[in-house]
Write a protein that binds this DNA or RNA. Structure first.
Length: 270
DNA sequence: ATGGTTGAGCGTCAA
């Protein structure tokens, strides 16, 4: 059976139209086969259709809306959209798209998620956005649990939760901060444990700090280094042996007019 | 408890 390299990137681009030029830097640096974006903030009728093709990614699926949310997958490999998932929390809010990659060795399923950020107050009564976030991960967990036994599947995205102690700059100080509260971190790990392994933690020990996001509200993000690992790549266990390397593109946080998230990349031999 | 910054799109809300 022929095998080939598959390099997958996930990036919360925080407006595709504003930062589409940065995709050239991303491609030049990481040479990905598939790019999964979140927070594209562009309705489908305004999606810059010729942009991905000019960069060498002729296969594109996207789901966007005006102003908020939005996900897109750009690929060198032919992809077909998979439309089996429900409308999470019945909001119609463009936070998930799934595709099948036509690899030579057989299909690989890929899910691109943008989990709700959850607002500021970690209390579902005072802050419905927090409740929405918890409900979202409960629904996704249940849906993947019901499909247990699936294989050759990759799940990526801005999951807006830093699940482990060393996924944040200060575990103690962030226990009450949305993105690292126990209901979120436990919920996310329950979702992952429906049938995935954490591909970045496959390479980096849990005792080592890893961040993919630094707030805009820090004068010097590098000096403060108050980061969180909000962006994730999970793979089904049958792909764990296919993992070859990973990259957190930290220096992208310094790109001119950059996103507050940086690209995360994993290479597999599938 | 609050502020700090950014994007969409023109009020403010969301992050």
């Amino acid at each position: 059976m022929p095998s080939e390299t598959l390099r997958v990137v996930t990036w919360n681009i925080n407006s595709l139209r504003l930062r589409i030029g940065l995709l050239s830097d991303l491609v030049a640096t990481l040479n990905p086969d598939v790019i999964c974006l979140q927070e594209t903030k562009v309705p489908d009728e305004l999606f810059p259709g010729d942009g991905p093709e000019a960069l060498g990614y002729p296969h594109v699926v996207f789901r966007g809306m005006k102003g908020y949310n939005g996900v897109a997958v750009m690929s060198r490999v032919p992809i077909t959209r998979v439309d089996t998932a429900p409308d999470w929390c019945a909001k119609g809010d463009c936070r998930h798209v799934a595709v099948e990659l036509a690899m030579k060795s057989g299909p690989v399923e890929l899910h691109d998620f943008y989990v709700p950020a959850g607002g500021d107050v970690p209390d579902r009564e005072a802050n419905p956005k927090y409740g929405h976030k918890l409900d979202f991960i409960t629904e996704t967990r249940a849906w993947f649990a019901a499909r247990s036994g699936f294989r050759r599947t990759i799940l990526v995205g801005d999951l807006n939760i830093a699940p482990l102690e060393h996924d944040v700059w200060s575990h103690k100080q962030l226990l009450d901060v949305v993105s690292h509260t126990p209901p979120e971190t436990e919920g996310l790990l329950d979702w992952m444990n429906t049938g995935f392994v954490d591909a970045v933690r496959h390479f980096v020990p849990e005792t080592e700090k890893v961040y993919t996001w630094w707030s805009y509200r820090n004068r010097d993000w590098k000096v403060a280094n108050r980061g969180r690992r909000l962006d994730h790549i999970w793979v089904t266990p049958d792909l764990q042996g296919a993992l070859r390397q990973h990259t957190i593109l930290t220096h992208a946080r310094d790109w001119t007019k950059g996103s507050d998230h940086v690209p995360v990349c994993v290479e597999l031999q599938v």
